[in-house]
Design a protein around this nucleic acid. Structure first.
Lengths: 103, 103
DNA sequence: TTAAAGTACTTTGAAAAACAAAGTAAAACA
DNA sequence: TGTTTTACTTTGTTTTTCAAAGTACTTTAA
């Protein structure tokens, strides 16, 4: 490891993406509307942040119709779960670091 | 609390600022060069992220000369320490949330 | 039956943030 | 004396974030 933040995953830097992933770690899926309410974000925001996570293959998207209406469901992929766990480990290490630097 | 991320502090969303603050929580000061090495960031990067934290009054800056050379030292303010602790609490709550939503 | 309102998103384009390259100024070295 | 190094700061471009507007229906209600 070269520096103290090298294992912090850039993809989870943003609070909305952090929120999406933590919801998906404890629930096996969420839909667009629920995510929007849980995170207090705008439509465009949810759309772009889920797209970013999808691009990294950290979540998958399932589209269907429920009661004749479109429904979009997000699920964490194995890759996403792994990456998120590693991110949390890195966070924990960073924060608990009795940083071995002596200034 | 309106949503699950409302107590996550936007100012600490970025990994470099997260790094700076966690270093400053356990060390009462760091200088520019040390920060740069610890975080593996470029000069401009350190400059702009410290400036962002300074703007929020989360850190203070002390400029002096050491061995005839300019030295910039960063220190977490009380406000910054408080904000960071609250941020960590919010993070912990978010991550441990057996989110009371039942999908 | 048809116009207006609502739902569930996606797209767009402007604003803000992040980045590294270039710039500055003094010190050290040769 | 000139060149290199150190310790930053400034600049301008790229990338990201954001919410407003757009799309494609469905529901309500006149």
């Amino acid at each position: 490891m070269k520096n103290i933040i090298s294992n912090i995953n850039k993809a989870f830097d943003h609070r909305i993406r952090l929120g999406i992933m933590s919801v998906l770690m404890v629930n096996d899926h969420v839909d667009f509307k629920t995510l929007k309410e849980l995170l207090g974000a705008t439509d465009g925001n949810i759309a772009s942040h889920t797209k970013a996570l999808e691009k990294q293959h950290y979540i998958t998207v399932e589209k269907s119709f429920i009661d004749r209406k479109p429904n979009t469901r997000y699920i964490a992929s194995d890759k996403g779960r792994k990456a998120f766990k590693e991110h949390l480990d890195a966070l924990e290490k960073l924060l608990n670091a009795k940083n071995d630097l002596n200034i």
